[in-house]
């Protein structure tokens, strides 16, 4: 369960990322977060696994108070939350399997970590994850030789191998063509249903959000302006989420680089 209580996030440059957000997501939900670019979708997602710190309020994930985590606890906590990105963020010049196995690095003894030699059990787990997303035959291909859709599935397998409770997906299909996007969305749906993993997904294709998610969260200038089951979403609501007096500002606003 993910629980935001009055969460506010203000960036160093005084840009308000999130404004007084209250949100509760149960285990196994498939939630799509929609809104304009710069509305705070990425910020919301990155607060969940503490890639961003929240400024005030309370954020609990599976009964853990995220704000109180430090150092090693953060990393252990993150290992149970998978994350998928718009630009895939895979390690280029490395094989598909090599990319997937990186998830298991923190659990290896130091000498294996240094040399990059994985035990047999890890490799099997990696192959299994690849099989799960249907690209087992590409295991030893270099990732830079795969198509965008295949790369995103490698990224998905990378999260699966860590046996996560939650997967955060930041615009996972924005860089893909419509057909491939559907294939990847299908993967998310299947993983959500079969493995009961919660999925939080930022997306700007409203039609895909409506087709796949159980629940829609609309966000505008850092505030949640809609939260409800997909069935309740009407064109007026979509309009409400995307309508803004500061459309230009919101579009031009750049979220600080996530370093």
């Amino acid at each position: 369960m993910i629980k935001f209580e009055n969460v506010t996030k203000i960036y160093d440059n005084d840009h308000v990322g999130l404004k007084n957000v209250n949100l509760q997501i149960e285990q196994g939900e498939f939630v799509a977060i929609i809104g304009l670019s710069g509305a705070g979708k990425s910020t919301l997602l990155r607060c969940v696994n503490k890639m961003h710190e929240i400024t005030s309020g309370k954020l609990t994930v599976n009964e853990v108070d995220v704000t109180k985590l430090k150092g090693k606890e953060v990393r252990q906590f993150r290992s149970k939350i998978g994350m998928v990105f718009q630009s895939f963020n895979l390690i280029t010049r490395t094989s598909v399997l090599g990319n997937v196995l990186v998830t298991l690095v923190p659990s290896l003894p130091w000498w294996r970590r240094l040399l990059g030699i994985y035990p047999r059990s890890a490799k099997l787990a990696g192959l299994e994850a690849l099989d799960n997303v249907g690209i087992l035959e590409k295991a030893y291909t270099r990732v830079d030789q795969l198509s965008g859709g295949q790369q995103q599935r490698v990224a998905l397998a990378r999260t699966l191998v860590g046996d996560p409770d939650i997967i955060l997906a930041d615009e996972p299909v924005a860089a893909l063509d419509p057909v491939t996007a559907k294939v990847v969305m299908n993967d998310f749906q299947r993983i959500n249903q079969q493995l009961n993993i919660s999925i939080l997904l930022n997306i700007h294709h409203v039609d895909l959000a409506l087709a796949y998610a159980d629940r829609i969260v609309g966000i505008r200038q850092g505030e949640i302006v809609f939260d409800g089951p997909t069935a309740q979403v009407t064109p007026e609501i979509i309009d409400h989420i995307y309508h803004s007096h500061h459309v230009e500002d919101a579009v031009n606003e750049k979220v600080p680089a996530h370093v």
Binding site: L97, R120, K123, L124, L127, E128, D131, L136, A139, Y140
Partner: peptide, 10 residues
């Protein structure tokens, strides 16, 4: 199948 793939690693 997975075993076979594992041994096929170059």
């Amino acid at each position: 199948l997975l075993e076979a793939k594992l041994t096929a690693q170059p």
